[in-house]
Each structure stands twice: as structure tokens, then as C-alpha cells.
């Protein structure tokens, strides 16, 4: 049992070490790629002073992450606030579902890079355009999972609603929503993942301060170590977000 737990921690560590070794090997062969040691040397000021603001984009990594997370939170909330009711509607009405399903399948694979210019045209402001792109890209999993969740409600529960002659409102609040909740949360988790993917693209295009904006600016300033710093930060935050949503989901299923 103890050995098992030890391996549980050890094996991922071995994986990380191997990846860093591969990175180091690559940096030896490709001179433009900063080695792990050099990346640390050039980035440690951002990590060790995570909350210091030196300039518009020259800020500690925690501050940059905070701006990005704030933007993601807004876009994500907008996305699920639109996606959840739409998902319920499509789930309840086969007619609406047939009407909009093909459209949805077409819009779903459109890249955030494609939505962003449209957002800029529509709203004239880069910040609003970024939120628009995040919301539009991240709402699909919420719509689809909510819809599937409503469809998956067992006939038993519909029978309870009919037999007890529950009103439409009561049926919605006491049966449809609780029965769909686990599916909804799966949708939210996937949506949040996409929202976080979109943030980098939209910050790169709009130049807004944040992890993605930082990445793009450092690329333009030819400080490649900071690109790696930004990439690692994006990965770690994405992982933590997914884990947190996973925990919330598990909580919900247990209740």
C-alpha cells in the first residue's frame, strides 16, 4: 500500500525529470532554445516576485495570471450563462434541437482566432472582443452536455411529474435541473478548459496584459526564455482549473 502511494508520486516526477532532460538535450542542439537552467535564470524574477508590477506587461507572473484568469472568468461566466438555458431549451424541445443542431455543429469547430476579428468589428473594443471570443468558443460543451443531460432524464422522473401533476416550474426546478446537474457540470468543466485555451489567443491578438499578452510581447522582444515561462504557467493553471472543476463535479455526484 505504501509502495503504491510512493509510486503514485514518484512516477509523475520521473516523467517531469525526463521531460526536462529532453528539453535540455534539445537546447544543446538548437541554440535559439533556452536551456532549462537559463530559462530559470531569466525568469526567476517573475516567479520569485510574483506580485510586482514594473510596467504594463512587465509584471510578476501571479499578477499576469490574475489578469488572464479574471478575463477567463468573465468570458466563461458569460458563456455558461448563455449556454445553460440554451442547452435546457434544446434538451426539452426536439423541434428546436433539430432546427439548431446542424448550425451548432458548424459553429463549434470555429477557432477563437476567427471569432476575435468579428468581435473587434462588432464591439470596437479589444477587451469586449476577447470576452466575446471566449464566451462563443466555450459555450458549446455547456450547451451540448446540458442538452444531453435533459434527454437522459429517465422516463420514471417524467412519470413522477405527470402523476403528481407538477406545474411546469416545479418540474423544471425539482426534476429537470437536479437530474441534469451532473451533466451540466461536465459541460462547465469542458467549457472552462476551452475558455482557458482561448485566452492566450485573444490576448496575443489584442495585446491585453495577461499571460498570453506577455508571451507575445516577449516573443517580439526576442526573450525566448519568457515564452517558455508563459507556456509552463498556462499549462499549470489549466491543470489546476481542471482539477478544481473535477473536484466540484465529484462533490456534486456524491451528494
Amino acid at each position: 500500500m505504501r509502495v503504491k502511494r510512493f509510486m503514485h508520486l514518484l512516477l509523475p516526477m520521473v516523467g517531469v525529470v525526463l521531460a526536462v532532460l529532453a528539453w535540455w538535450a534539445a537546447s544543446v542542439m538548437i541554440p535559439e532554445l533556452p536551456s532549462p537552467a537559463r530559462t530559470w535564470q531569466e525568469s526567476k524574477i517573475y516567479i520569485l516576485q510574483p506580485l510586482v508590477k514594473r510596467g504594463e506587461t512587465d509584471q510578476g507572473i501571479a499578477l499576469l495570471a490574475y489578469y488572464s484568469l479574471l478575463r477567463v472568468a468573465q468570458g466563461f461566466l458569460l458563456g455558461i450563462m448563455i449556454g445553460t438555458p440554451v442547452g435546457f431549451l434544446l434538451g426539452v424541445s426536439p423541434l428546436l434541437c433539430r432546427m439548431f443542431d446542424p448550425l451548432m455543429q458548424v459553429m463549434r469547430p470555429i477557432s477563437p482566432l476567427a471569432w476575435l476579428p468579428l468581435g473587434l468589428v462588432l464591439f470596437q473594443k479589444s477587451e469586449t472582443a476577447a470576452l466575446f471570443a471566449i464566451a462563443v468558443c466555450s459555450m458549446w460543451p455547456t450547451i451540448i452536455n446540458t442538452m444531453v443531460g435533459v434527454r437522459a432524464i429517465p422516463q420514471d422522473y417524467w412519470n413522477v411529474a405527470k402523476v403528481l401533476r407538477l406545474s411546469k416550474t416545479t418540474t423544471f426546478l425539482k426534476i429537470i435541473v437536479p437530474a441534469t446537474l451532473p451533466y451540466m457540470f461536465t459541460g462547465y468543466r469542458l467549457s472552462l478548459g476551452i475558455a482557458w485555451l482561448v485566452i492566450v489567443a485573444s490576448e496575443m491578438l489584442t495585446g491585453a496584459p495577461g499571460v498570453g499578452g506577455f508571451l507575445w510581447q516577449e516573443y517580439n522582444s526576442l526573450i525566448y526564455a519568457h515564452i517558455l515561462l508563459a507556456i509552463i504557467t498556462i499549462g499549470v493553471i489549466g491543470f489546476v482549473l481542471d482539477r478544481l472543476m473535477g473536484l466540484a463535479e465529484a462533490r456534486l455526484r456524491a451528494a
Binding site: D156, Y157, N159, V160, V163, L164, R165, L166, S167, T170, K174, I175, P178, A179, A255
Partner: peptide
């Protein structure tokens, strides 16, 4: 056909509330 997210009392109360 009980609703799993409601307690026994809430399940029964739902019928009373509807009636």
C-alpha cells in the same frame, strides 16, 4: 420512482405541494 436528490419527507411533500 422517488427523486434521489430529495429526502423521503421532501419526496412526499412534493406531492402535497402539487396537490
Amino acid at each position: 420512482s422517488l427523486l434521489p436528490w430529495l429526502t423521503a419527507q421532501e419526496n412526499v411533500r412534493l406531492a402535497i405541494e402539487a396537490a
